[in-house]
Design a protein around this nucleic acid. Structure first.
Length: 565
RNA sequence: GCGCCUGUAGCUCAGCUGGAUAGAGCAACGGACUUCUAAUCCGUAGGUCGCAGGUUCGAGUCCUGCCAGGCGUACCA
């Protein structure tokens, strides 16, 4: 609809210019939006105001001329008006909204999708938590935001690739192995000194038990270094399996799990360091190798190889991001926790330094999550190993609620996640509010079938076709609440586009809550199943469309759309 | 100290990247189930948009400076 109005304005403006009523046809960019007040019509444009300069005329004068060229006989326009400082308001004929419904039936599960991305290759890397411990709610937020952003991009015509980067190299993994090795010894009754820097959580003990079961006393038959190395690999593999399992329960899967160790083994880390060294972007100081990130906007230069010869995490990360771009992605998106934000300038520096366009690299920073129970913070002491895992949170409140809660906030805002609130099934927890719409509509379908208001053939595709072309039935849709619903449905495609453009999945969640509110209000005021077959058919036609959009939106957010609740 | 994020109703949060009288849920108060699911709806009340300037036809939104909270500022990841 906005497109139609936009074209209408442009055509009228052009005509006005050709008739010398406008001074210029270099029109400024204008917007079309939905006014908050009904008195301001269905759609409104600021065309006259933003063009005051290009036309050297008063906004209201411009509006008058434009309206005279738009006229009143356009098929979708009921009337137009000028208001305030120069807004032009459009009142749309109710029947002009009906094609939105047939569009929804035609596109069905793809309604709202677009080709905005034009097939561009985009990679979204998210979670990428170290396999040294279980995921917590903070990881959950990144996982859900990343996954939904990826879905959104995919719906908007991008070729999306989901990737998890496994930090399975380096000191932390050694520490993990040592922790498991020591726990193994303890299991065998040996007294050991368990250092504070080792991982304290119970899960280490569990892994040690598993290892003992599989390998018995084998670890004592080899050197301690070899044993610890084995423990590292064993533990990391187990942790990855657990991480993968939790993510699967959230409905998240990846196209690729990328191993840091494999990256190192491939020699890519070494070769990228050598390359930058040749280009004198890496230099030696105090027996360490430094990357000149400061030349590219970072606060200071950063170490890539320590004076003990060990490469830093940054070194592999440089190689990793080079590799991503080498794989041909037009855009690479990293989803990180806000505590990593200091890391952005150095990665960006490494990308710029290699001659790539830094705009191809985008970071989504999700702010931290405060886990609460009844308003009281739940202790998240990492050192003690006493913390609530993501798995436990999902078990307690359910996957749909967890996902939706994370998606009803802008990821840039810190988030209070209250376990008790998340469990409630009221409007403090809007996932049920939205799902209830879907269930209610399913229930109406069921009821209609029982009462033979629609017969079996009408439940399938045939029924939809029958109703769609039944103009008599569609024409019965004319209550203000019904037109309101259709207008809302018409906004879905542009909601997806803006959501994908800004990579803000929460826009979809809020859209769904608003649509749900409109539906519940309608449901309480009007009956769908009536004595009048045409009226009933028309209303069924409308609410099926609502159900389709609710389902599409929930699917995009990874939330189920139940038929009964 | 410097950098990033946040500050909107008692609480949790939106505000469509500058538009018209700042919105929703929860909590409070008052109503609506012989009806397609009351996990719902309708109504009332609730605000110096952290503070102060600036930019312009117009600012919650953009700029500057303060205030408060969070995070970061390693040869950790």
């Amino acid at each position: 609809m906005k497109k139609i109005i936009r074209q209408l304005i442009l055509d009228a403006a052009q005509k006005a210019f050709e008739n010398n009523e406008f001074n210029s046809n270099g029109f400024a960019e204008f917007t079309i939006e939905e006014p908050k007040a009904d008195a301001h019509g269905d759609l409104s444009t600021n065309f006259a105001m933003v063009n005051a300069k290009t036309q050297k005329m008063a906004p209201r004068k411009i509006a008058e001329i434009l309206i005279s060229y738009i006229g009143n006989n356009h098929p979708v326009i009921e009337k137009t008006g000028i208001a305030g400082p120069g807004f032009i308001n459009f009142f749309i004929l109710p029947a002009a909204w009906y094609p939105v419904l047939s569009d929804i039936y035609e596109k069905d599960t793809k309604y709202g999708f677009s080709d905005m991305g034009k097939g561009q290759k985009v990679q979204v890397e998210f979670v990428s938590a170290n396999p040294t411990g279980p995921l917590h709610v903070g990881h959950g937020r990144g996982a859900i935001v990343g996954d939904s952003a990826a879905s959104l991009l995919s719906a908007c015509g991008y070729d999306v690739h989901r990737e998890y980067y496994i930090n399975d190299a380096g000191k932390q993994i050694q520490t993990l192995g040592l922790s498991v090795f020591l726990r193994c010894k303890q299991i065998d009754g040996l007294t050991v000194d368990f250092p504070e820097e080792c991982y304290q959580g119970d899960y280490i003990h569990d892994i040690a038990s598993e290892l003992k079961e599989e390998k018995g006393n084998w670890i004592y038959s080899v050197s301690e270094d070899e044993a610890v190395a084995f423990c590292s690999k064993f533990a990391a593999d187990r942790m990855i399996i657990k991480i993968r399992t939790v993510l699967n329960t959230l409905g998240i899967s990846f196209d690729n799990w990328y191993s840091e160790q494999a990256l190192v083994d491939s020699g890519k880390v070494e070769s990228v360091i050598n390359k930058f060294r040749d280009q004198q972007l890496i230099y030696e100081k105090d027996d360490a190798l430094w990357f000149k990130t400061e030349d590219f906007g970072d606060e200071k230069d950063r170490v890539v190889v320590r004076n003990n010869g060990q490469a830093t995490y940054f070194a592999s990360d440089i190689a990793y991001h080079q590799d991503k771009l080498d794989r041909g992605f037009d855009r690479i998106i990293d989803v990180w926790g806000a505590d990593h934000h200091g890391y952005i300038p150095r990665i960006r520096a490494s990308i710029t330094a290699s001659g790539k366009n830094e705009k191809q690299f985008v970071v989504i920073l999700t702010q931290l999550v405060n886990l609460l129970r009844k308003g009281v913070p739940v202790s998240m002491g990492k050192r003690s190993g006493q913390f609530i895992t993501l798995q436990e949170v999902i078990d307690e409140v359910g996957k749909d609620a967890v996902r939706f809660i994370f998606l009803t906030r802008n990821y840039e805002s810190p988030l209070d996640f209250d376990l008790e609130v998340a469990k409630q099934k009221n409007n403090d927890n809007p996932v049920y509010y939205v799902q209830y719409v879907h269930a209610r509509i399913s229930s109406i379908i069921k009821k209609a079938r029982e009462e033979n208001q629609i017969d079996e053939k009408q439940i399938g595709k045939k029924q939809i076709m029958d109703i769609r072309f039944d103009e008599k039935a569609v024409a019965m849709i004319r209550e203000p609440e019904e037109i309101q619903l259709i207008k809302h449905l018409a906004r879905y495609p542009e909601t997806l586009i803006s959501g994908a453009e800004f990579m803000e999945p929460h826009r979809i969640a809020f859209y769904l809550m608003d649509l749900a509110a409109d539906f519940h209000a309608y449901y309480n005021k009007h009956r769908v199943l009536t004595e009048d077959p045409d009226l009933t058919a028309g209303r069924l036609y409308l609410i099926f469309a609502v159900q389709k959009v609710i389902r599409n939106g929930l699917t995009l957010l990874g939330v189920s759309a139940p038929d009964s609740m």
